[in-house]
Design a binder for these strands. Structure first.
Ligand SMILES: [Mn+2]
Ligand SMILES: [Mn+2]
Ligand SMILES: [Zn+2]
Ligand SMILES: [Zn+2]
Lengths: 161, 161
DNA sequence: TATTATATGATAATGAGTATTATATAAAAA
DNA sequence: TTTTTATATAATACTCATTATCATATAATA
């Protein structure tokens, strides 16, 4: 478990160095936060966590580092209905359940061969010409368990007005 | 064909009226544009088309109407890698191939029963608790046929620097 | 036709993300 | 270790998509 996280961190750090980027303490901390997080934080979320260790950190630095990590494909950007981009340190193939009420983003694990089997077939059906796929996106929009229950119990109120 | 488009337009207009919203010429034109378009236009794209018939139209009005149509589920919002939201007048279940170079959004048709069969199974696998799904999102990020060919022929140039 | 609530258009405001630039510092060389 | 140098950071200003405000216009209804 802990072992997994560390090897992920090492992978990213190695890549950063191999590509000639320097490893600053701020950058390392950002990599740690985003690679260990399971909550798909926004840039501001990462910023807020960082401030505990680095009170002088600039939000700009957070944006730049998240962009860098995205550009080397070590984090994925998630655009949902809300206003800001969220970041995923888990770059394995999986989907997201996005709650339209509280905004929570929950992983939906899907067996990779299953996933690719289904989608690649659809691409073949739709495109006779070349089409080069880099990445897949898969979202389920709706209400998470908590919000679903809340809405159900307030039904008599929320119906009117 | 034409018949299809008109019935779609009538459906939306009926709904607008039934829900107590008034039908202004601007609103009607926006509904026409977005329901007939196959190109997933942004708000500004719709605005530019509108100005031909309504030179005084306000961009604000476009945003408000697209939001209204979205809120009554007669258009879907698409958030891609680019900065602005795109709108889809086709609310049937389908996916999108998004070109990371030129930004084009191309429909990926998927048989509805196929689609739901696959995805609902995944939801059942992932959530024991209640999870209420309103909507699905399915994206293929990559390079469209045109951009793929362009990139291939410029390979020797784009590799360096 | 008169009434009234909603829609429009002009304008200002918001806010996520980006650009700029002086200073600091990681990495490499000496 | 010290020096050098290119990159990273932080402070700040800026951009631009979207939203808010509000006076006026107009669609809907009687
Ligand atoms: Mn995830
Ligand atoms: Mn579409
Ligand atoms: Zn929720
Ligand atoms: Zn393209």
């Amino acid at each position: 478990m802990k072992h997994q996280v560390n090897s992920r961190l090492n992978d990213i750090v190695s890549k950063i160095k191999k590509m000639g980027y320097s490893l600053t303490p701020q950058r390392l901390e950002i990599i740690k936060i985003v690679s260990e997080s399971k909550s798909h934080p926004s840039a501001v979320d990462v910023y807020d966590k960082l401030r505990k260790a680095y009170p002088m950190i600039s939000l700009n630095t957070v944006y730049k580092n998240l962009s860098l990590l995205s550009s080397i494909h070590e984090v994925k950007e998630i655009r949902t209905l809300q206003d800001s981009v969220h970041y995923d340190g888990d770059i394995s193939l999986h989907g997201h359940a996005i709650c339209e009420k509280c905004g929570r983003i929950i992983d939906v694990k899907i067996d990779e061969s299953d996933f690719k089997g289904f989608f690649d077939a659809k691409i073949k059906e739709n495109f006779k010409e070349n089409y080069y796929i880099n990445n897949y996106g898969l979202e389920f929009y709706g209400l998470c368990g908590l919000c679903y229950n809340e809405t159900a119990s307030n039904e008599s109120i929320s119906v009117q007005s």
